[in-house]
Amino acid sequence: MITLNDVKEARERIKEISYITPILQSELLSKECGNQIYLKSEHLQKTGSFKIRGASNKVIHEIENGAKYVTAALSGNHGQAVAYVANKFGVPSTIVVPENVSVCKVNAIQGYNGAVEKCGTTSGERLPRAKAIAEQQNGVYIPPYDDPFIMAGQGTVGLEILEQVKNVDTIIVPIGGGGLVSGILTAIKETNPKIKVIGVEPELANDTYLSLHNKKITAIPATTTIADGLRTNQPGDLTFPILMKYLDDIVLVSEDEIRQAFSFVLERMKQLIEPSSATTIAAAMFNKLNIQGKNVVTVISGGNVDLENVHQLII
C-alpha cells in the first residue's frame, strides 16, 4: 500500500503542474445541512478535475525513467489530464476513446496535442488497444486509478485540506475506482486518524459499497447513473485494501438527490460541477452522514460537464 511519504513525494513532483484549489463555502448550504460545509473545489483545478494530480505524478515519474510515449484508455477527465501533462513535457500521447465519444471531449484532448483513436464502446475494448499502442511505441500505459503513483498524486488533495480547513471533523469523497479516496485516506489517516473519511457512491453504481459489505471485491453490471465519472463496475485491486483498512463509512445517494445537489450548487453558488461531484453535496444535504454541528469537507472532484446535457441534470 502507498504511504504518507508517497503522497508527500507526489506533492513535490507535481507542484509545478497542479493548482492548490480553493475552499468554497455557502452559509445556506451549511444551514440546510446542519454542519459547517466546506467545498474542496477540484472543479477549478487545471483541466477541470482532480485527475491532473495523479496523471502528473505518474507521467512525470515515467518520463524521469525514460518514457518517450504515453497512452490512456479514457476519454474523460483522466484522458484529458494525461494528454495535458504529456504535452507539457513534449512527450506524444494517444488517448483511446469510445466510438460514441462526445465532440467536446475529443476537442479537449486534441487541444492538448493528444492523438485520439476511437475503439469500440467498452473499456474491455479500449484498454487492450491503449496497452498495445504503448508497447508498439515503446511507451507506457497510464491507468486511471489502480496504480501507486496515481493514488499518491490524488492523495495531495488530502494534504491541502489539512492545511486549509482548521479542525476538520469529516471529509466526504466520491468513489469510482477508488484512486481519489485511497489517496486521501492515506494522507488523512496517517496524519490524523481521528478525522473521519466517508465515501459516497450513486445507488446505481454501488460496487464499492457491496465490496466493503462482502469484504471482497464485488463487480456489478454496467450502470447508467448520471454520475458518469463513478461508472466503474468494481474497485481496484490496489485501492480496495486501503478502503478496507481506513474508510469510516460509505453511503449511497439516489439519482434524484444527485440532481437536486447539482441544481443547488449551480443556482445558489454559481458553480458548475459534475454530477459525480454532486454526490458529496447530496450526502450532506440529505442527512446521509448522521452528524450535526461538525466541520465537513465535501470533495468536489471535477467540473467538466457537456453543456448540451446540463438541462437534463437540473431539477
Rank of each mutant, 00 (worst) to 15 (best):
I161C: 05
L4G: 00
A130P: 02
K270Q: 14
I171D: 03
S49H: 05
A134Y: 04
D147A: 03
I23A: 08
G229C: 04
S30T: 07
E99C: 11
I60Y: 07
I133K: 10
L247D: 09
N35H: 05
V103I: 15
R126P: 04
E16T: 09
R129Y: 13
P202Y: 08
G199V: 08
G66L: 04
Q36R: 13
Y38K: 05
G153Q: 08
I226M: 15
N214T: 11
H43R: 01
E163R: 12
E267N: 15
V181F: 04
E135F: 07
C104Y: 14
P92L: 00
D249R: 01
V70L: 03
G34K: 07
R13W: 13
Q260T: 11
N35G: 05
T224K: 15
A261G: 00
G79K: 04
V97D: 03
M269V: 02
K15S: 12
G293E: 07
Q292K: 13
N206I: 02
F149R: 09
V173G: 03
V265H: 00
Q234H: 13
N304E: 03
S75Q: 09
I314S: 12
K196T: 14
G153D: 04
V265K: 03
V299S: 04
F264Q: 09
D147N: 11
T239R: 03
I142D: 08
G79W: 10
G158P: 00
R11C: 07
Q137D: 05
L74N: 12
D228P: 11
I195M: 09
V70T: 02
L289P: 03
I315C: 14
V96A: 08
I314Y: 15
K245F: 10
G124N: 11
G114H: 03
K245R: 13
Q137W: 11
V253W: 06
N100S: 13
G90T: 06
D147E: 13
I142V: 11
V101K: 07
D228I: 11
E135I: 11
V101T: 14
K8T: 03
L307Y: 12
I198H: 11
R53T: 03
V7P: 00
A72S: 14
S211T: 10
K31F: 11
L266P: 11
T47Q: 06
D147R: 02
P241Y: 01
R11H: 06
Y112A: 14
N138Y: 13
Q136L: 15
V103C: 12
G34E: 01
I184Q: 02
R259Y: 08
A222V: 15
I172A: 01
G199A: 04
I17G: 00
P92G: 01
I281F: 10
L238C: 06
F264L: 12
K15M: 08
H61P: 11
G111K: 06
N309M: 12
I161N: 01
L162D: 10
A152P: 07
Y19W: 00
E257Y: 04
Q136F: 12
S49A: 14
Q136C: 14
A284C: 11
D249L: 04
I314A: 09
A67L: 09
N113R: 12
P275L: 04
T94I: 13
S102V: 14
N87I: 07
K131P: 10
N57P: 13
G158F: 03
Q137V: 07
N290H: 00
I171Y: 05
S93Y: 07
P128W: 10
G120Y: 13
N192Q: 00
K270I: 08
S301T: 12
Y69N: 06
C33E: 06
S263E: 14
V82L: 02
N65R: 13
K166Q: 14
E9W: 08
N113G: 02
